[in-house]
Amino acid sequence: MDKKVSVVMAACNGERYIGPQIVSILQQLGERDELIISLDPSTDQTESVISGFADSRIKLLHGPGQGIVNNIEHGLTAASGDYIFLADQDDIWHSKKMERILEVLKQDAALLVVHDCRIVDEALNELAPSYFMWHGTKTGFWNNLLRNSFIGCCMAFHRCLLNTALPFPKQLPMHDQWLGLIACKMGKVKYLKEPLIDYRRHSNNQSSL
């Protein structure tokens, strides 16, 4: 039987962009897979947009309302998949993202994969062709402890990582850096120099660039 995939998304006030992102994810999920959306209290119609999909693979949770890190943790705790993908509410997955990442997780003995992305504006106009190049991404535990290059929406990993990474330490500043550093200590981290999402930047992003 094929392994199950859980995509975990933290959402809050995302009605403007979350619909197209959900579409780009659902197109790549199998029947057994799941999209877990942990929705923090919102003042817009995000919940209505999500509910409008009426897709049984979407699991909508009410988030704790304590910021993005706690919201991500809430979603990860509910994930039941063998492979875990993180997703932002306002990006767009490229059509081969899941296929490509699963190939690496299964065949390259990687515990965690982090891939490149194309940075775009609100209208999906390109701002930079490569986050890795723009950010000066470096590999290794110490490099990423000093200056984080792990970007959550570009990460996927084996479920076993959560056995060590959860629960998150209190006052954790960045969930993606924490997950990446734990993975560096536990096993192989693979960097893919392939842009597999459009990483949308706008005035209301929950995460910083």
Rank of each mutant, 00 (worst) to 15 (best):
T43W: 07
Y191A: 12
Q206M: 15
A78R: 14
L39Q: 05
I68H: 05
I25C: 00
N204E: 13
T43E: 11
F53E: 01
K59H: 13
P20Y: 00
E34W: 05
Q28H: 05
F53R: 01
V113C: 12
C117S: 15
P169N: 07
Q206K: 13
M186R: 07
L172M: 04
L61T: 02
F141E: 02
D88T: 09
I50L: 10
F85P: 00
C117E: 10
D88W: 05
H94I: 08
S208G: 13
M9F: 00
P41F: 09
A10C: 13
Q27W: 03
D121Y: 02
N204G: 09
R159L: 03
Q206C: 12
E47F: 02
I72A: 02
R16Q: 14
K170S: 14
C160W: 08
R100F: 10
C154E: 06
G19F: 00
R201V: 15
L102R: 07
D90F: 03
M133I: 14
C184Y: 14
Q27G: 10
E47D: 12
Q27N: 11
Q66I: 09
T46H: 05
D40T: 04
V104K: 11
Q89P: 11
M174P: 06
T77M: 14
S203W: 04
L105I: 08
W142Y: 13
T137C: 14
R201M: 14
K106G: 10
S24C: 03
P64N: 08
Y199M: 15
I36C: 00
M174D: 14
S51N: 12
A10D: 05
Q107L: 13
K3H: 11
T137R: 14
K170H: 14
L179K: 01
H135A: 13
P64H: 08
R118Q: 15
G187N: 03
V113F: 08
N163A: 13
L172T: 03
V5I: 15
L86S: 01
E122P: 00
S24Q: 02
M9S: 00
D90V: 02
H135G: 07
C154G: 09
L181C: 05
G14I: 06
L161T: 04
G67C: 06
N205K: 07
K4W: 05
F157I: 07
K3A: 11
A54M: 13
K96N: 12
N125S: 09
D44E: 08
D40P: 02
L39Y: 06
Q206F: 11
V23W: 06
L29Y: 01
G67L: 03
K190P: 11
P169F: 08
G65N: 08
Q177G: 06
F168E: 02
S208C: 10
L105D: 06
G180Q: 06
G140A: 07
G19T: 00
Q177E: 11
T137A: 15
F157R: 04
W134N: 12
